[in-house]
Design a protein around this nucleic acid. Structure first.
Ligand code: ZN
Ligand code: ZN
Ligand code: ZN
Ligand code: ZN
Lengths: 163, 163
DNA sequence: TAACAATTGTTATAAGATAACATTTACTAT
DNA sequence: ATAGTAAATGTTATCTTATAACAATTGTTA
């Protein structure tokens, strides 16, 4: 089977398009995508794998910027708030969102070996969890779904799934 | 997170039973549930809400024990390896497993306000994620599903779900 | 321009986790 | 029993992740 370029390493596909969409969304919402915030988003989209806050800080400093950790975390908080990025709690890293126009809880396939991330959006998963919560009178505020494993590339020529 | 001591559906229902089962499982597996490991498990089960590694360390020191962070993390690693506890990635805390006899990926409802945790085990969720992964030739090693929200107690008399 | 709010910079510190090595404990084989 | 060995724990230091508190800057408004 041929892997579509989309399903393999989708993050690095097109930072420019992601930034353009971010501009539009922020403008529409009256949110200020400042130089710093825009640059942080650009850094995140430009890297093939998700980055930690401190990795982003290092790259900002390569630009000549002066800020410290709070500067980065504040920018990340803004981007998270706008749904432009997701945080992967299992790795403490940040990755660009592929459907920033529709608010959602991220679902991710994370490669243990190369760090590549694939974002899913399976409504059935979300619905099942919501149903479980509802049955227990539990009010859902956010969902975290992260699947750790090995991507096709890192599995190499290994036996494909039986099922 | 606000961890109020008044518990809704406490984890602490029966630490003794959990410890007893842990003993049996470890014996059956030839794994050594040492005094330290047993005590860490007991601490985890005795608390109404999940504990951080450092909170566990503090409680160990109350016992008069001398270890540092590595001591706790090693014990936690053992318990994780035996499937006796889970780690909640979104909060950096550890909670006792209710079905330690069958290996599984945890699914959790976590109350934002009181910290109480409810462990689900919905096979359909696991299967859906597995199917998504398989479709992408992705080998699954672990699944993390954490739903953050508010438990019935913390919602108080608020309107129940419409749906 | 003055006042005010939002954003960013700066310093310090809290919180979570691990590396490296020393010591102790438990098991094995004489 | 006793020495040898492996496993487990203790100890020190360090690294990573995240936030608190406050100052300086920038943008907006009156
Ligand atoms: Zn997304
Ligand atoms: Zn990979
Ligand atoms: Zn469990
Ligand atoms: Zn609650």
């Amino acid at each position: 089977m041929t892997l579509s370029p989309d399903s393999c390493h989708p993050l690095s596909s097109d930072p420019r398009q992601a930034l353009e969409q971010a501009e539009i969304l922020c403008q529409r919402r009256g949110a200020r995508l400042t130089e710093l915030r825009r640059r942080v988003l650009e850094i995140i989209w430009s890297n093939p794998t998700p980055l930690s806050a401190y990795a982003i800080l290092d790259l900002l400093r390569d630009d000549g910027r002066q800020g410290g950790p709070p500067t980065v975390y504040r920018a990340l908080d803004f981007l998270l708030g706008q749904g432009l990025i997701h945080r992967l709690a299992s790795l403490n890293v940040f990755t660009g969102c592929r459907q920033p126009d529709s608010r959602h809880n991220g679902q991710f396939l994370i490669c243990r070996d190369c760090g590549q991330v694939d974002e899913l959006s399976n409504p059935a998963v979300e619905e099942l969890l919501r149903a479980e919560a509802t049955a227990r009178q539990f009010e859902v505020l956010a969902q975290m779904v992260e699947v750790l494993g090995r991507c096709p590339d890192c599995r190499g020529g290994e036996t494909p799934y039986a099922g």
